[in-house]
Design a protein around this nucleic acid. Sequence first.
DNA 1: TTGAAAGCGCTAACAC
DNA 2: GTGTTAGCGCTTTCAA
Lengths: 343, 343
Amino acid sequence: MSEANDQRRRRVTIVDVAKHAGVSTAAASRVLRNAYGASESMRARVQASMEELDYRPHGPARGMRGRTFTIGVVVSDLENPFFSLITDGLSSLIRPKSYELFVSPGGFEVPPQKSVVEAMIDHHMDGLVLVAPPMSIAELEQIAMSIPLVVVGHHSQSPAFDTVAADDERGAQLVVDHLVGLGHRRIAFVMHADGRGDEARPESHRLHGFERAMSQHGLASDAIVVDSRWSLDGGGDAARQIDALDTPPTAVHAGADIVALGMMNELWAGGKSVPEAYSLVGYDNSSTSSLGPIWLTTVDQSGVEMGKRVGHLLIERIEGRSEARHEVFEPRLVVRGTTTRPA
Amino acid sequence: MSEANDQRRRRVTIVDVAKHAGVSTAAASRVLRNAYGASESMRARVQASMEELDYRPHGPARGMRGRTFTIGVVVSDLENPFFSLITDGLSSLIRPKSYELFVSPGGFEVPPQKSVVEAMIDHHMDGLVLVAPPMSIAELEQIAMSIPLVVVGHHSQSPAFDTVAADDERGAQLVVDHLVGLGHRRIAFVMHADGRGDEARPESHRLHGFERAMSQHGLASDAIVVDSRWSLDGGGDAARQIDALDTPPTAVHAGADIVALGMMNELWAGGKSVPEAYSLVGYDNSSTSSLGPIWLTTVDQSGVEMGKRVGHLLIERIEGRSEARHEVFEPRLVVRGTTTRPA
DNA sequence: TTGAAAGCGCTAACAC
DNA sequence: GTGTTAGCGCTTTCAA
């Protein structure tokens, strides 16, 4: 032990590994990256040294030249249960491939989300997942120029990035079919008004699905669309709007679980309840919707499966694919306690 | 324009900025970091160049020498609403200081959480926040050797890292006082059994608070402790255990909102409800607890405020403080509909 | 198949 | 107050 003992251990670097294994740093790097051009014997020797020295690659240094092995996920808020299903599926797929997942809440507006996205690009993440982003297609294509991108819950067919979404038109149709099957005719849909006009957004697809299904049942004139926001507060607002209607609906498709919860809240505050006031359907099959006292009829989007698919597509893109993929998942109706025959 | 136009724009680097402003890269770097040693005029000139060239620093390159300006947050799962309150408060404090927040779900077990923590260390995050970690104090101190660390919801007094927690003993006492005030005597507490023996964990403090408060009211022999897990399933399990008791309690402190929800679920499945079966209290004041049909009496931990405090402490640590701070927040009882006088 | 060496963009000594 | 320069730990030519 001729060398002095450092106060705090210096990090083990690839140079240490190479020295320990008696090879060049280039060789050690090739082994680390599973790259072409290393014999089996060398591979084994270097891996043994890495093991023995407890070597862990320095992220920023890798990022200077090659990949950082990080994947960024931007969501509006962390609380949305659908988002955590996506990240669960995603991480189960990418962690085994030694990518790390970093999630960042970007808010519901365009400017804060964009700056979070920029931060991820600046930190040289290898790929980016945007979940239900508020940005326009043009803005998303702009982002896709700097980083491999998969967008979840967006229905664009852009050639610049991949999308994974549930068939929202079909989902809305399942809801209407179910309600009409129970005998309802006058049915309302709560729309996230910000999304109007942007055909790529889920709310547009759910709205179209609702309107088309109502028409198919010959109920076009019984369809009511309530403009609000898809949030807890927006649900309360929608409930108040519906309450003020001259001829109120007997059933409501809230568009999203969070909206349905807000509506239940508002009804409850007024001493009313569901399904007595009207039948109510959500969308997302969030964990809250399955709680006994809530027991909300809703639409399931198989978020975990979607998350896995997202991981698969993103890794393909990171590894070089450049043609876009657009995948659509089949939604599934989950009938629970908030829908009954009309009085 | 003597230079050829690149196919895709090369990133603007600090060298470009320095050249454009007619200064050295060191000077540009000093301006970028707001570091000492740059005159007002130079500062202005460099900032103008950065603006004009739309310069954005290269994260990995900064990380090689100095800070990465990233803060990592490890939570068990993204879905827990208390966690998102913490991150909300945290990000509101650190983003203005140009730190970026990256959250990673680490699971409920020690091994996966540790590997997520290691990934964050390997990526040279400047600071780390662990929310309700399952690790032992020794393991946390180990981590704190490599990275500035603030632990949320942990009651250790370790000199190696900071902690921010609510006064869980006090919180449990508020619950007992409330229930006893309503006339309850036989009261159960649901314990997260994994935490038994680890005095640093919130569940231990809440248990002690419960037992002490019951003793103070002369009800030591009426106190029931049910061993389960603090999860939705664990709540169901606890409800079944309580149902099987010879002399069941008239009130239950579930220990955490998520447990109370699981219990309501189980009761609901059996055709019973709260507070008819027994009065029920949670802990966390999660957004679900305030939904009309749930309307759970609970304890509020002011998560957003705690998150802000966490950010403050972490930045202090990153900037050099080495003595530990241990901050305790006062909890607040939120009385809603699940607690009434005993029948 | 392997190694030597250049350099990624930035920061931190140190010199002026 | 300002500039020069030597790296940080890795990947990637390029030559052997």
